[in-house]
Amino acid sequence: MNAPVSLPPKTPRPRRSAFTPARLGVYAFLVSVSAFFLLPLYVMVITSLKTGPEVREAILFAWPRTPQFGNWLEAWSTACISVACEGIQGGFWNSVRLVLPATALSVFLGALNGYALSFWRSKWGDLLFAILMLGAFVPFQVMIYPLVSWFRMGGFYNTYWAILLVHCIFGMPVLTLLFRNYYVSVPQELFKAARIDGGGFWRIFLQLMLPMATPMLIVATILQVTGIWNDYLFGLIFAGKDNYPMTVQLNNLVNTTFGERRYHIDMAATILTSLVPLAIYFFSGRWFVRGIAAGAVKG
C-alpha cells in the first residue's frame, strides 16, 4: 500500500486589524452624516417636551425636567393660528384629503403613460416622452404664473381641484420616466404572448403589466406621498384658505404675531407635521430600495 501523502501545515492567515485608517474614515463619515440629520431631530423632540420657562433658559441639548406631552395635544387641537385657536388638526385632514386621491391618480396615470410609451409605440411616442422628460427638469416656479392665470380663467383657482390637479401634473414626468424604464426591462415576449391570446390595451395593462410593476408602484407611491405631504408652495398658492395643507398651517402657527413666541408648541406642531413622512421612511425604506433595484434605473 502506498503511504499516505502528508499535506503541508496550513499557514495561519494574518489577522486584519479592526481599525484600519480606511475603516476609521468610513465610520467617521457615517457618524458625521448621522449626527447632521439626527441632532436637529433630537433638538426638535426635546424642545417639544419642555415648558416655556425651560425653553427660555436656552440650554439647547438639555433633556426636559418633566416631559410635557400635553404640548403635542395643544399643538394639535387648541394652538392659536391668527385668531382661530383650533391647532393644526384641520391642516392634517386637508393633507390627507389631498394626498390620497392625488397619489392614486398620479401613480395610475404615470404607470399608464410608461406602459404606453414602452410597448404601444406610435409615431409620436418618442416626441411625447421627450416632452415629459423636459418637464421633469424645468423648475416648477417658472410655471406658477401661467397656471394661476389658467385656473382663474377656468374659475377654479384657490380650490381643492386646483391643488389636486397641480400635484398630478407635476408628478407626471418623473413617474412616467420610472414606469417607462421599468416596463422597457420586461421581456417583449410576455407582451406579444398576451396580444396573441387576445388581450387588448387595457386588459394587458390591468391584468399583466400593472401587477408586475408592484415594486415600481411602491416607489412611486412613496415619492408622491412624501412629496405632496411636504409641499408648501403649491398649497399656499393654489389650495385656498379652506384647503390649506398641514405645512401651510404650520407656517401660519410658527409665524403668528399675536402674543409671546411659544417655541415648545411650535416644535410640537413641527413633529406632528413630519410624522407621516418619517413613518413612511422608517417602515417603507427597504421597499423603496428594492423597487429602485428592481428596475427604476434601467432602460
Rank of each mutant, 00 (worst) to 15 (best):
W229I: 06
A130P: 03
P21Q: 02
P277C: 06
F108T: 11
I163V: 15
L41T: 09
G91L: 06
D266H: 12
G227N: 10
P139C: 10
F119S: 02
M44W: 04
P211Q: 05
I280Y: 06
R13T: 11
P215H: 15
R203G: 13
S95D: 01
G291L: 11
W93A: 00
L250W: 09
K50Q: 05
W124I: 08
M212H: 13
Y281I: 12
I81A: 01
Y27P: 06
R262C: 09
A104S: 01
A294P: 13
N252Q: 14
P53E: 01
Q207I: 10
S77K: 13
P40I: 11
F288S: 06
L233Y: 05
T257P: 03
W76H: 00
T159D: 04
D126T: 13
P146N: 01
L117Q: 05
V289K: 13
S118G: 03
L132T: 12
R15A: 13
G52S: 02
A111P: 06
P4K: 09
K123D: 05
T247V: 09
R262P: 13
I131C: 13
A18I: 12
C85M: 05
I237W: 00
T159Q: 07
Y27H: 07
R290K: 11
I271V: 14
V174S: 10
V31H: 02
F19D: 04
P8E: 06
R15K: 12
I88R: 04
A268Q: 08
Y182F: 15
C168T: 15
L250I: 09
G199F: 05
L73F: 05
V297Q: 11
S48L: 02
T257H: 04
